[in-house]
Design a protein around this nucleic acid. Structure first.
Length: 154
DNA sequence: GCCAACGTTGGC
DNA sequence: GCCAACGTTGGC
């Protein structure tokens, strides 16, 4: 079982939106980055847990936990010319982009701002804290996971 | 295969 | 709104 951190802009889709979805489940569509595509297609497994990270908001930070409930499958929004994530180079017969389904697990009683994560020496290796990191999904170690969950539940 | 130009991400 | 970092594109 693995742990992840998944970024989304709450103006587009935040943890409260996920909670309001039918069965509190949604597909994580729109990723157009190959490294992230590979993680969703090859590595993320049902039962894995992920931190829901709110990016491009004030302040950015970790809002809660979700669970992977469906493994990588073609991102159909790439086939739809009307969709903002449309990619004509992705063919339904040979899909270029993949997504997973996630289910709401928990919203932390306490939102953890990025600035606070940066203060934790135990978290200094986290991908999200490395400069220049732009991946929307990154793996999280068990140690980092436990530390962050503890902060969120304080 | 190189690399300049361009687009996007995302914190500040 | 700015801009650093990084990915992608496309001419050569």
């Amino acid at each position: 079982m693995q742990y992840w951190l998944m970024k989304s802009e709450p103006d587009e889709f935040g943890i409260d939106d996920l909670k309001k979805c039918p069965r509190q489940t949604a597909h994580w569509d729109g990723c157009r980055n190959y490294q992230v595509r590979n993680m969703m297609r090859d590595q993320m497994k049902v039962g894995d847990l992920a931190l829901f990270y709110h990016s491009n908001t004030k302040p950015p930070g970790v809002a809660g936990i979700m669970e992977i409930v469906k493994e990588g499958y073609p991102d159909h929004t790439a086939f739809d010319p009307e969709d903002s994530h449309y990619d004509p180079k992705s063919d339904p017969d040979k899909p270029r982009w993949f997504m997973v389904n996630v289910k709401f697990v928990e919203k932390f009683p306490r939102y953890i701002p990025l600035a606070e994560l940066k203060q934790q020496s135990q978290l200094s290796d986290m991908k999200i804290l490395q400069r220049g990191n732009r991946l929307s999904i990154t793996p999280v170690s068990k140690k980092e996971w436990d530390h962050i969950v503890k902060m969120g539940r304080e």
